[in-house]
Design a protein around this nucleic acid. Structure first.
Lengths: 250, 250
DNA sequence: CGTATGGTTGACCCCGCTCAATTGGTGTGG
DNA sequence: CCACACCAATTGAGCGGGGTCAACCATACG
C-alpha cells in the first residue's frame, strides 16, 4: 500500500475520501490493514462492507436510543453528539465524536443503541455492518485485534466526568482533549471551532451553562484563551495543561 | 453439556469450581460455549488456557499500573478493587469486581494495565491468556462475540460516577447495583457483606467518607437499611430503587 | 425592524467538603 | 484478662464552590 501525500488540512475538519484500496487517511480503521500485509482481495472484502452515508444536517439524528443495532460508524466529517434522556426527561450528553472516531461501539452487547446520536453540523459517516465485520475479523487477526483495541480504549474514556474536579479543571481538560484529538487527525491544535453549544459543553461536563460561561470569561481575562463565539484560540497551552493535569494524569 | 444442579448459595460468595468440560457456573465465560454446540475438543482448547490462580489475601495486589498485560481474569471468589493514583498521589477508586466479573479488559489496547487491582478479601481468579484467547476467538465465533459483548458492556458502566447526582442518589444506586450483581450470581439480594471500606465507597462515588456515613445513618433512621459495620440488610428496596432511579434510568 | 435563541452577568443560597473531636472495634503485649 | 494503641467510622460546626433564578445582551433570521 502506498503512502498517501499528506494533505494540508486547514479550515473545516473533513477527511479525504480514500478509494477502493485505501481508507480515508484519518479513519479509525486505516491502521487495521496497514499493519498487516493483506493482499488486495482481502482489502476488497473489508472495503465492500463500508458504506458512505450522509450528509446529515445539523439536528438530524443518526440513530436513536432503542433502535436495532446493526452497524458501527466512523465519522468522516463534522461532529456527532451522543446523549440519553434521564428519568426526568432531561438531556444528558455522553460524548462528542470528531472525524476519525467511531460511534456505536457501546451498542454491541444489547443489539440496540443505548443512546441517541445527533449531528451538530454537516456530518458524513462510513457505516460498517457489524455482523459482517465480526465475521471478517475471524479471518483477519489484525482486524480483530483492532476491534478489541477500539473497544478496550473506550472503556476508560469517562475520566473527565469521573472524579470530582473543579469547574476550571473540567473545562481545561475538555479543551485540552479537544485540542489533542484535532491535532491527532492533522488539524490545528491551537485554533478550533467549537461545534457544540455552551449548554452541551456544560451538560457534558456536568456543570451549569453559567459556570462554563464564567470560567471561559476568566480564562480569557487571564490571557489563556481567546474566545469569539464558537471560535477558540489557545494562547497559553501550558496553563491549560497545568489545570488539566489533575484530570488527565499526564 | 448437562445442566448443573443449582447450588444453594449462602454466606460467602464463592463460585463452584467446574471441571474439565464445565466452567464455573457463575463464570462470565460459561455462556460463551453454552450458546454454541461446540464439541469437546474445542471446549478443551478453551479450558486449557484457563489457569486458576490464588488465593490472594486482603491487600495483595493482582496487578499494578504499568505492568505488561497478557491476561484477563474472571473473579471466582472475593472482591477486587481497581484504582489509580491521581496527579497528587491520592487514590481514585475505579470499580469493584465481584465473583463472575472480568478484570483487565481496559488493558488490551495499551498492552499495559492502566490501573492497579487489589484484593479486598481472599480472592481466587481464573486467568485467561489474552493472546491465546484472541487466537481461539478467530475460530470460535461464539467466543469472539462474547468478548465483543464483554468489552461493549463495560463502555457505559461509569453511569454512577457520571452525572451530577446527589449523595443520596449516588449511594442508593451503588447499593442497588451491588444488590443486583449479587442476585445475578445467585446470592442474596437483601443481605450482603460490604467487603470494601467506607472510604473506598466514598472514594468510588466521589463523596467524602463523612457524607457516606451521614447518608447511611439517615437511611437507617428512616428504616430503609439496617447497617451493622460491614453487614447490610435492605429493608425497603422500593425506596432505594426510587432514589437510584435517576441514576440508573430504569 | 421585531422576535427568537443562545450566551453572559449578577445576587443569593444550599449541598457536600473540610476540619476537628469522639466513638468503637480489633489486635497486641504485658 | 486488662490496658493500651491504632485505625475505621461516626458525629458536629462552619464554610465555600457551584447551582439556581433572574435580568440583560448580542447575533441570526423573518
Amino acid at each position: 500500500m502506498q503512502e498517501q501525500p499528506l494533505k494540508v488540512l486547514t479550515g473545516t475538519p473533513i477527511a479525504d475520501d480514500g478509494d477502493d484500496f485505501t481508507f480515508c487517511s484519518t479513519c479509525a480503521f486505516s491502521q487495521a490493514c496497514l499493519s498487516e500485509g493483506y493482499d488486495k482481495s482481502v482489502l476488497r472484502d473489508l472495503h465492500v462492507l463500508v458504506e458512505h452515508v450522509g450528509p446529515f444536517r445539523e439536528g438530524d439524528h443518526i440513530f436513536r436510543e432503542g433502535d436495532p443495532f446493526n452497524a458501527i460508524a466512523a465519522v468522516r466529517a463534522g461532529t456527532v453528539k451522543t446523549y440519553v434522556n434521564d428519568a426526568s426527561g432531561r438531556e444528558q450528553v455522553l460524548g462528542f465524536f470528531l472525524p476519525g472516531e467511531v460511534i456505536g461501539l457501546n451498542a454491541i452487547h444489547t443489539a440496540r443503541y443505548p443512546c441517541n446520536a445527533v449531528a451538530l453540523d454537516t456530518v458524513m459517516l462510513c457505516r460498517f455492518s457489524f455482523p459482517m465485520m465480526a465475521t471478517l475479523a475471524g479471518r483477519m487477526p489484525g482486524l480483530q485485534r483492532h476491534l478489541f483495541n477500539l473497544l478496550s480504549q473506550d472503556i476508560g474514556k469517562a475520566s473527565v466526568l469521573a472524579g470530582n474536579f473543579t469547574a476550571d479543571e473540567r473545562l481545561a481538560a475538555f479543551i485540552v482533549m479537544l485540542s489533542r484529538r484535532f491535532a491527532e487527525r492533522g488539524f490545528s491544535a491551537h485554533r478550533m471551532r467549537l461545534t457544540m453549544a455552551r449548554t452541551d459543553i456544560a451538560n457534558y461536563l456536568r456543570l451549569a451553562p453559567e459556570t462554563v460561561s464564567r470560567v471561559l470569561r476568566r480564562l480569557q481575562d487571564e490571557g489563556v484563551l481567546k474566545v469569539d463565539r464558537r471560535d477558540m484560540e489557545i494562547l497559553k497551552p501550558e496553563v491549560l495543561d497545568e489545570l488539566a493535569h489533575h484530570v488527565l494524569r499526564d
